[in-house]
Amino acid sequence: MASQLLKRTEVEKRYCLSRSTIYRLMDEGLFPRPVRLGSRSVAWKESDLEQWLEERSRKTQGA
């Protein structure tokens, strides 16, 4: 099953993150990298974001 692709504005809304936070976390290796769609367009795989959220939740719960 193919994963849905989310543009940055949708990622910001769904995960309550600002643009600067998304790119800072990516630079720190703490957020999934997007898929390049064109020369000036990227999107994130929803499955990558859900996995990131699960891992983040486990870390905060101490598991």
Rank of each mutant, 00 (worst) to 15 (best):
P32W: 05
S57Y: 09
Y23I: 08
T21L: 11
W52Q: 01
L53H: 12
L5V: 06
A2D: 05
L53N: 12
I22D: 08
E28C: 00
L6G: 02
T60F: 13
G29P: 02
P32I: 08
R19C: 09
V35R: 15
R24F: 00
E10C: 01
T21W: 06
L25K: 15
K59A: 14
I22T: 05
K13L: 08
P34Q: 08
S47E: 12
L37K: 07
S47M: 03
Q51C: 03
S18T: 13
E28L: 14
S47I: 01
D27T: 05
L25E: 06
L25F: 08
T60Y: 07
Q4E: 12
R33H: 11
S3Q: 05
P34Y: 07
S3I: 02
D27Y: 07
Q4D: 11
P34E: 02
R33K: 14
V35W: 10
K59G: 01
Q4H: 13
S39A: 15
R58K: 14
A63S: 08
L6I: 03
A2G: 04
Q61C: 01
K13G: 00
Y15F: 15
L6V: 02
Y23P: 04
V11A: 07
S18Y: 02
E46L: 11
R24C: 08
T60Q: 12
R14P: 00
K7R: 13
G29F: 08
V35M: 14
Y15G: 03
E12S: 08
S39F: 15
L49I: 06
Q61E: 15
A63P: 00
S57V: 07
S47C: 04
F31T: 07
E55H: 01
K7F: 05
V35A: 06
A63L: 15
Q51T: 03
T21Q: 15
M1C: 01
R40D: 08
E50N: 14
I22L: 13
F31G: 00
R56H: 08
R40P: 00
A2H: 11
E54M: 08
E55N: 05
R24N: 06
R36I: 12
A43P: 04
S47P: 00
P34L: 14
T9R: 07
Y23C: 10
Y23H: 11
T21N: 07
L5P: 02
K59V: 12
V35I: 15
A63H: 14
R36C: 09
A2P: 00
L30V: 06
G38E: 09
Y23M: 10
E46Y: 05
K7L: 12
R58W: 09
L30R: 14
Y15I: 05
R56I: 01
T60G: 04
R40V: 09
L17Q: 10
E55Q: 09
S57W: 05
V42I: 15
Q61I: 11
S3L: 04
Q51G: 01
S3D: 14
V35Y: 11
R24Q: 10
T60V: 11
